Simulated assay, not measured.
Amino acid sequence: MWRSLASNALTLLAVVLVLAGGLVMWGKRQYTSPGPLETAICLRVEQGTNMTRLSDRLADIGAVSDATILRLGAEYTEKSHLLKAGSFLVRSGASMEEIVDIVTRGGRSTCGTELNFRIGVTRAEVELREVDPQTERYVEVLSFDPGTDAVPEAYAAYRDRTDLRFRVTLAEGVTSWQVVEELKAADFLSGTVADLPAEGSLAPDSYEVSQGADRAGLIAEMQARQTRLLEALWLDRQDGLPLDSKEEALILASIVEKETGIPEERRRVASVFVNRLRQGMRLQTDPTVIYGVTEGKGPLGRGLRQSELRRETPWNTYVIDGLPLTPIANPGRASIAAVLDPETTDYLFFVADGTGGHAFAQTLAEHNRNVARWRQIEAERAAD
């Protein structure tokens, strides 16, 4: 009898184990298989949320088929305690395993709202934008000039969100004075910048920052990036360039940056200045004269006067020989690369051609014809 009872108990135990194993396998398939989410969503995880509340919310919105399985899977993989606050892109059909990985992997938001403080050559702009989960592209919510525009009422609501990301973007060709002055209006930064950074020492780039980041620390990062970039490009420079130092390369790059906004022209424009330096010709470039007038403190806002073209300053390349005293702006990677690897040409002159680009010439006679065509275009535009 006892032997029969023991045999039945063992049989029952075996059945229970088989059923339990089957249940585990079913749960694992549910955890790793594609989920029911039909369209991508931006999942916002508030500070202090735990895996239980998150799993219930995911079940309520139809992102997962079973909240309990998600919780158990997170516990089994030892990820429950790794949940981070932020906004995360969850694509359609994401499995529970993928969702848990997304919200615990590194804590960095992959969608949601971003504040981008753009510093341009003529103005700054605060742009709030959100990721559209369907296209995975940013869509502008609002924008304004912090120096001249009234702050939109909606800005305050976004500004205080815990998952808001912050970014500072520098355009190519901004001056160091402009950067420091505009950063004063970035209300999500803290601290002051004691000394004006050397012209040309800041890398035009996009910088992700945290709320309350130190302005001086951000400036230091901009300088470090420009130093690394210049050193790397200097090592790959052409042989025989009339540039004796990285500083001279930076000066010439800043001139190229201010002379053309056409990417395809940079190496050609650089070739004109390199050819002039090799022949001992003055560079005769208007942006250097403008810098001598403004010293980088904002755009000139008008045309140059003849008296300014004749006035001697350390930057007026119509008057001085060779390169100006310092860079005249902060050049980007493309302009630095252009002066260290210019096109091989015989061009010595260029002038605007009316299309946004320039007409290049080898001789003064040819250049004068190009200038006459440009003057005619200017006259026709003025008449219209």
Rank of each mutant, 00 (worst) to 15 (best):
R3F: 06
S7D: 00
N8E: 03
T11Y: 02
L12K: 07
L13C: 15
V16N: 01
L19A: 15
G22I: 00
R29I: 12
P34S: 12
P34L: 05
E38H: 04
A40D: 12
V45H: 05
G48N: 15
G48S: 14
N50P: 09
S55K: 07
R57T: 06
V64F: 02
S65F: 06
D66E: 10
A67E: 14
L70R: 08
R71K: 14
G73V: 00
E75Q: 12
Y76H: 04
K84R: 11
G86H: 02
F88C: 07
R91G: 08
A94M: 02
S95E: 07
I99E: 08
V100W: 04
V103S: 09
R108V: 11
G112I: 03
L115F: 03
N116H: 02
G120K: 04
V121N: 12
R129K: 12
V131E: 05
D132H: 08
F144T: 01
D145K: 02
P146M: 04
D149R: 00
A154G: 01
R159A: 14
R161G: 04
D163F: 00
D163E: 14
D163R: 00
F166Y: 15
V168F: 07
L170C: 01
T175S: 15
S176H: 09
V179C: 10
V180T: 13
E182N: 06
K184E: 15
A185G: 02
F188E: 04
L189I: 02
D195Q: 15
L202H: 13
L202S: 13
L202D: 13
Q211A: 11
Q211I: 02
G212V: 07
A213S: 13
A213R: 02
D214E: 11
G217M: 04
I219D: 12
E221N: 08
A224L: 13
L229F: 05
L229W: 03
L230K: 08
E231G: 15
A232Q: 15
A232R: 15
L235R: 13
D236Y: 00
G240M: 05
L241C: 12
L243I: 04
S245P: 06
K246T: 07
E247H: 14
A249I: 00
I251A: 14
E257T: 05
E257D: 05
K258D: 08
V272A: 11
V272K: 09
V272E: 11
G280H: 11
P287R: 08
T288K: 00
V293T: 10
G296I: 10
G296H: 10
G298C: 10
S307W: 06
L323S: 13
L323R: 12
L325W: 05
N330R: 05
G332M: 08
S335A: 14
I336S: 00
I336P: 00
L340V: 08
T345Q: 07
T345A: 11
D346S: 14
F349I: 12
V351R: 10
G357H: 02
H358L: 07
A361S: 15
T363P: 01
N368L: 11
V371R: 00
A372R: 07
R375S: 06
A379T: 12
E380I: 05
R381L: 15
R381I: 15
A383V: 11
A383E: 15
